[in-house]
């Protein structure tokens, strides 16, 4: 199994641990990831709202490079990268105007793109290509007794729901059940974390984070697992700010799902960059049976 791999900007900064743990986990599962050459920002964030066509062109440059680089599907780890790249394909297929504008822009740098490179989410690869059965077979340290709150975030399955139910996804639940963990009912799984609003309207974003953290605490989760660098950062880094605003005392470990899954396959914590987490994950590590 080979894929072209699009790490995305966050993977080089705040979301470093997502990138490191993904590479380690996939290597362990025998999945080869070939990093996309000379990739650029996917075009996510506010850019889409301000200059939509430019954003499509930026995303399409990555897709055009991917098409030239190999026949493998392009895999993204960040929910926003995944959605943005997929959305570019969809708009190019549905709108002549977007198709022409994008290719016009790419033409300036001597590129072109037909809108047809398949884009996958890393979870889609894990569940549907590797398969839950194969995953369960390779577990060396079952996560027995670890209570996991699976947090999917806004853009995991919405708007398209390509590989999971749009409004109530369950793939991450299935993965961690297969790894032996106890998956808690986490109804806030699709609620927004506040996203970039944390920079502009902090009190609103904190309220959203508070709801997510409170639900996890109410459900007695040991750890929240996330599939998006921004979600992960908001939930983890802003816990002190949530606590001071709402008078709470949350100290809930938040991990990338690739980190926790990697532990189940016997990858060393260091190689999964667990030391980079801000809220200590020691209790989680200790809870996993040897």
């Amino acid at each position: 199994m080979r894929y072209l791999y699009y790490p995305g900007c966050s993977a080089e900064a705040t979301g470093k641990a997502y990138d490191i743990s993904t590479r380690a986990l996939m290597a362990k599962l025998g999945v080869e990831l070939i990093e996309l050459d000379d990739w650029n920002c996917c075009g996510a964030t506010s850019y889409f709202s301000v200059r939509e066509l430019d954003s499509f062109a930026i995303a399409a440059r990555n897709l055009s490079i991917a098409q030239a680089q190999g026949d493998e599907d392009l895999v993204a780890i960040c929910n926003a990268c995944y959605t943005t790249l997929s959305k570019t394909n969809r708009y190019m297929a549905e709108s002549d105007e977007v198709f022409k504008a994008v290719n016009g822009a790419l033409g300036v740098v001597g590129r072109s793109y037909d809108g047809k490179k398949p884009v996958r989410h890393i979870m889609d690869v894990l569940i549907n290509d590797v398969g839950l059965d194969a995953v369960a077979d390779k577990v060396t340290r079952r996560l027995t007794g670890v209570k996991v709150a699976p947090y999917y975030g806004c853009q995991y399955s919405r708007p398209m729901g390509t590989f999971d139910d749009t409004e109530f996804p369950t793939t991450m639940d299935s993965l961690f059940k297969a790894l032996g963990a106890e998956v808690v009912d986490y109804p806030s799984k699709l609620k927004c974390c506040g996203g970039l609003m944390m920079m502009t309207k902090e009190e609103g974003a904190l309220r959203m984070c508070h709801e997510l953290l409170k639900t996890a605490a109410d459900k007695n989760a040991d750890v929240i697992v996330a599939a998006c660098p921004l979600c992960e950062m908001n939930l983890e880094a802003y816990q002190p700010r949530v606590n001071s605003t709402f008078g709470t005392n949350f100290k809930i470990p938040v991990m990338y799902f690739t980190q926790l899954a990697g532990l189940a396959f016997g990858v060393e914590p260091k190689k999964l960059a667990i030391d980079l987490q801000l809220v200590s994950c020691d209790d989680v590590l200790a809870a996993i049976p040897a």
Binding site: P187, S188, E211, K214, T215, D218
Partner: peptide, 8 residues
């Protein structure tokens, strides 16, 4: 929009 048991 939704029915939930998350209490705020």
């Amino acid at each position: 929009a939704e029915v939930t048991d998350v209490a705020l």
